[in-house]
């Protein structure tokens, strides 16, 4: 026989001693990157698409105003404002924004930004009212929250 019979080599069992290390590494990664969902949405929210968007770097300097039709059908279809965990009216916006800004470190208050997360079907009347309230509250940095569109063409498609 030209071929020698192979000697059987016993494969040593794979050591699992480093498994906890790997798992811990992943664990720390997720612990650091995780952000808990802060509010439960009470309104239906479908954000518009845009291409010229910028990241809002500092979450602690940003406060969110949600606008959309209430998820609770008993409250009707008309878009409503959600501040923190409850539905509110336009009249509440000014004071709420001022209170939110009070929580920001004084040196960083000029960077305080309000992010409007509005549903695409909301009307500009409501949003303009909010804008006026923000102007009264001297919260002049504003962000219209939007999802990134890969190209302008793709964005236009949504309007046909």
């Amino acid at each position: 026989m030209p071929f020698k019979k192979k000697k059987k080599i016993e494969t040593p069992p794979v050591s699992t001693a480093s498994l906890p290390d790997i798992v811990f590494m992943l664990l720390f990664f997720f612990m650091v990157t995780t952000t808990m969902r802060e509010v439960t949405l009470l309104v239906k929210l479908k954000k518009p698409q845009a291409t010229e968007i910028q990241k809002l770097e500092r979450k602690d300097l940003t406060t969110y105003i949600y606008i959309g039709a209430p998820t609770n059908a008993a409250l009707g279809n008309e878009p409503r404002i959600q501040l923190a965990d409850q539905l509110a009216s336009v009249a509440d916006v000014q004071q709420w924004v001022i209170l939110q800004r009070e929580e920001v470190n004084e040196a960083e208050r000029p960077k305080f930004t309000v992010s409007i997360k509005s549903d695409i079907d909301a009307k500009m009347g409501l949003i303009s009212d909010i804008k006026q309230e923000l102007r009264k509250a001297q919260a002049l940095k504003l962000s219209y929250s939007a999802n990134p569109a890969s190209s302008a063409e793709e964005m236009f498609k949504a309007y046909r």
Binding site: T34, Q54, K55, K131, L134, Q138, S143, N147
Partner: peptide
């Protein structure tokens, strides 16, 4: 974990 970063069109409002 949710890793969404808020993005949007940044604008400045005129003072009241």
């Amino acid at each position: 974990t949710t890793m969404d970063v808020d993005k949007g069109l940044l604008v400045k409002l005129p003072p009241w």
